[in-house]
Amino acid sequence: MSRVAVVQAASVPFDADAATSKAVSLVAKAAAGGAELAVFPEAFIGGYPKGTSFGAVIGVRTEAGREEYRRYFDGAVTLEGDEVRRLVEASAEHRIHLVVGIIERLGNTLYCTALLISPDEGLVGNHRKLMPTGSERLVWGFGDGSTLDTMDTPMGRVGSVICWENYMPLMRQAMYAKGVELYCAPTADDRPTWQATMTHIALEGRTFVLSACQYLTRDAFPEDHPIEQEMPGGDVLMRGGSVIIDPTGTVLAGPVFDEETILYAEIDLDVKKRSHLDFDPVGHYSRPDVFQLKVNDAPADSVSFGG
């Protein structure tokens, strides 16, 4: 048996140093609670600017929107930066594996990324969201198949699929084929319908699902940050809904709404093994004579230099 944790907490938008300090504190708390793996929400470091348009409509950009993007850009982190180093150090110090949602800055483009961090090996994976949703495409680039990373742990193989990537059937199938046993779903989706999606994935993949969402309120943002769309929850921009589900669809922890918390659950991989008696989506329940999936896992670089 292994113990895992899902962290439901607010980011510190645009302040990577403060958000990292909060994450490090929560890593220590999760480890003190006995967790060997802690999963953080989407965009925990860098922030998820819900309700913000960045001054962009079709055919028009505003200078105020460009300045807001500049602030968002400056609040992002690089894989080689101090923030990731501090997360790696916290993982090693507390002997805990981590999945952490960040806004990654690579050159002049931002990516919504999930870091996979091992206490022994450091940063072993960085999955960049393949398909930003809706207006996210204005401020985030598209990941490629080279970052469909996994992390082997004593608890089982860990992989991460971010938010609405989980509605991409072929993406899920690729992760099942990679042997993911602890399927981590950092998200910004706090709707009740998300719970049905997580339960379906647990049953479809016969995998443990760990979904982490922020509990985020208006006062987490700077006073001058524009939120141009009225939010359904008023000053509550994200209400959580984090959850842990086992391969039989049994909810082990959560969902919890409207508060910051850490959810814990015991993981028994024998539950997964037993569940495959009658279903394996990439094995005996697949029909490769009828359906086949080809995954391009090569880096999609726009410019290559070479002889």
Rank of each mutant, 00 (worst) to 15 (best):
D289M: 10
I201R: 01
E83I: 02
V12E: 02
T20P: 08
V77Y: 03
M231E: 14
I117R: 00
S302K: 14
R206D: 06
I45E: 02
T261P: 02
A92D: 02
R86E: 15
L216D: 09
D189P: 04
D289T: 13
R71D: 12
R274H: 13
G143E: 04
I96A: 00
Q214Y: 06
G34P: 12
Y264G: 13
P49T: 12
V236S: 06
P222R: 08
K50F: 11
G47W: 04
D17Q: 14
P132E: 00
A43F: 02
E83G: 09
K273S: 14
E230N: 08
P186A: 04
D268N: 05
A18V: 11
A202Q: 03
V209Q: 05
G51W: 08
F305E: 13
T78K: 12
T193M: 13
A18E: 15
T62P: 12
T133A: 08
S11W: 01
E260F: 01
G179K: 00
R206L: 03
L148D: 01
I103E: 14
E136W: 01
L138G: 08
L148W: 05
V161Y: 00
T197S: 14
V295L: 11
V4H: 04
M171C: 08
V303M: 09
F44D: 00
P255G: 14
T52D: 11
E68K: 04
V99T: 11
P299W: 07
A5Q: 11
A18S: 15
L170A: 13
S2L: 00
V24E: 04
E181G: 07
G234K: 10
R218W: 11
V84E: 03
A174T: 03
G205W: 05
T248W: 01
Y69V: 00
L26P: 01
G134K: 12
A92P: 05
F291I: 13
L87G: 03
C112Q: 15
E63Y: 11
A5K: 10
G47V: 07
R172Y: 06
A92C: 04
R206K: 15
T207H: 05
G241W: 07
F305T: 10
R3E: 14
K294V: 15
M151S: 12
V139W: 05
L26D: 00
D15T: 03
L237M: 10
